[in-house]
Design a protein around this nucleic acid. Structure first.
Lengths: 348, 348
DNA sequence: TGGACGGCTACAAACGTTTGCAGCAGAACC
DNA sequence: GGTTCTGCTGCAAACGTTTGTAGCCGTCCA
């Protein structure tokens, strides 16, 4: 016995269409009538049925948000920001988790397609062509990967990786390991590309270890290989892997940063919580969530015109990176980007 | 130009009702007809419009999941488990975040009410009467709080707090601080009740510091007061606060566990990542998420009969708790519950 | 051989909205 | 005083499904 628009119409002595317009087209109805209708609706506790509305208007006022792994600390701030931003625009958010599986990803997009006005696809593992294909079923905004012809929000991790490598080289490291992320990740390729270039430019050697699952275990698993290879510094695909690596190194008696420097990526909450505090590349995840929602909601051609939003990253220097064997006189290692607090707040 | 049931009907030469039944009531349609219809539907890429289905059946096949703070590491595993479990039963999940605000909480329940078949209300900050009132609008399952007459899933944190206090007393602590959580949290009251009782029973003194926001800052803020009060051990409302506290103590030159022991609650991923690794009360969050979904989906009277599910907690002893001043001969502090790995997997 | 029945399908109403169109009153204009 | 216009409201169709009912045809049993 939920109260419908008809109940409100009856109780306020007007036609349903007038009630409808009182809500969705106020300028078409007499102000007096409208306030009366709204009062009655309020009293009856009327809430429009969005399914019915969706049926006729074709717009659900829902959006989908698909991530690889909710439990990965990179995503919650993004989800939180996207959800809250969407809600402020009267949209609700379906959240789904693919468990890093491209198949599940596709399935989820298809399953959600008819139920949402668009989908935020975060860090997809599918191929570009698959994504393009799906974008014909439902509007898509891709996060953390540029897909030709589709609106996307990416972090400039090329720059981030370059900053990280330059930082390590400046500290005196010449043999750097890149702890790679998952296969299929654009971010991973981008980091690899930029890090390789930066290392070559700076005259350092960079070795890639991977691909690996983007988890602590993935990082830990490469600890031996990296130590054995004689690298004195590591750039990890993300904070989680950096943490796993540091732990495994520590377990093997290798001290960070004394013997090996480790730099993470993402600046998740985790990076300030572990010891040594993690030097890492900060990515503006909350801003990315909001930007993606904005792109999705400004429908039509606009979406094409602002097709790619690139957000800046920055290096946050903490305690997990220290002097390397080739250290020359130079700036103190604490110099560089502003201290944590400032960096973190100013990024917003 | 999305393909509807009518397109399928036309293309396969049958009536729409036959198409509909081919999907939702297979036994009512001739097997041959059905396979043909399904083939045509597949070929056309037909996906039933859930809004339309919801309109007529009254069931949306969506559920709402409302949490206090997505970024709090306690919630992601719960969300993940709930989402995946719901999806396996062909339900999709709206996730929303209240920012620990009771007002937003109510608003969200109402906003979601018409759009879902039920809502999982996690760690609500509202009053019981408010919750009961809302449950007349939409089926509710409460997590982390028992509400009379409503189905609920709770963790036995009374037991957890007791175990923690007994552990600390066994280590020789007689002056214990309880780092309280947020006002309005049932869990907080429960912990307080059980810890107080356990301390009294064991002949120890327990002082409550709080309420506090359930964040690192909330924990850090009480570090001075706790140290000044001369407590030698602390039981914190959650891991996040424990971490903040440990950090602040460390910053003041107070060593954990040498000078003060700290025990957390929740066993979030964080607790194994920080140093010292956190002794904490493990809560089965993933199991809670699944149980809550199950309770919600077994509609009708059943929901009443299994109105309260209580999940067991257990103490996971790690490195943040150590001997206190009144240590007597006794079991080594490493004894007790099984080691991490076992405890963590067996809990599932 | 007639009737009952069972298996299958078509018909049409309904779900709760939105929205183009028509109608109506009064104001404004000439 | 007629016409046009404006502001408001009612009417009814439509959105894409589900589902109760009725109809058809063939089979079975007596």
């Amino acid at each position: 016995m939920p109260v419908t628009i008809r109940d409100v119409a009856r109780a306020s002595g007007v036609h349903v269409s007038t009630v409808s317009r009182s809500f969705s087209a106020p300028h078409l109805v007499n102000p007096e009538t409208r306030t009366h209708v709204l009062a009655v609706a309020e009293e009856l506790g009327y809430r429009p049925n969005r399914a019915a509305r969706a049926l006729i208007t074709g717009r659900t006022h829902n959006i989908g948000l698909i991530v690889a792994d909710i439990a990965n600390p990179f995503f919650p701030p993004l989800i939180k920001a996207a959800e809250s931003h969407a809600r402020s625009r009267d949209y609700h958010v379906f959240v789904a988790d693919t468990s890093e599986d491209a198949g599940v990803e596709e399935e989820l997009v298809l399953a959600l397609a008819k139920q949402v006005d668009g989908i935020l696809l975060c860090s997809p593992r599918m191929s570009n062509t698959q994504i393009e294909q799906l974008s014909r079923e439902v509007p898509l905004v891709v996060v953390n990967r540029p897909v030709p012809g589709l609106p996307a929000v990416v972090m400039d991790l090329g720059q981030g990786a370059r900053l990280a490598v330059e930082h390590l080289v400046a500290l005196g490291h010449r043999s750097i390991a890149l702890l790679g992320g998952p296969r299929g990740s654009w971010t991973n390729r981008e980091i690899r590309r930029a890090a390789t270039l930066a290392a070559r430019t700076a005259g350092a050697e960079l070795t890639v270890f991977g691909p690996n699952p983007p988890t602590e275990e993935g990082g830990a698993a490469q600890a031996d290989a990296i130590a054995r290879a004689g690298a004195t510094a590591v750039l990890a695909y993300n904070d989680l892997m950096a943490v796993g690596l540091i732990d495994a190194l520590d377990h093997n008696g290798v001290k960070v940063p004394d013997q090996i420097s480790v730099v993470g990526i993402d600046d998740t909450a985790l990076s300030r919580r572990i010891r040594p505090m993690l030097t890492t590349v900060a990515t503006p995840t909350a801003a990315a969530g909001r930007a993606a929602v904005d792109m999705l909601l400004q429908h039509g051609d606009d979406r094409r015109t602002t097709a790619l939003v690139t957000l800046q990253t920055e290096l946050v220097i903490r305690d997990s990176s220290g002097p390397g064997p080739h250290r020359t006189a130079g700036p103190g290692r604490r110099q560089g980007p502003p201290p944590d607090g400032v960096a973190l707040t100013s990024r917003e």
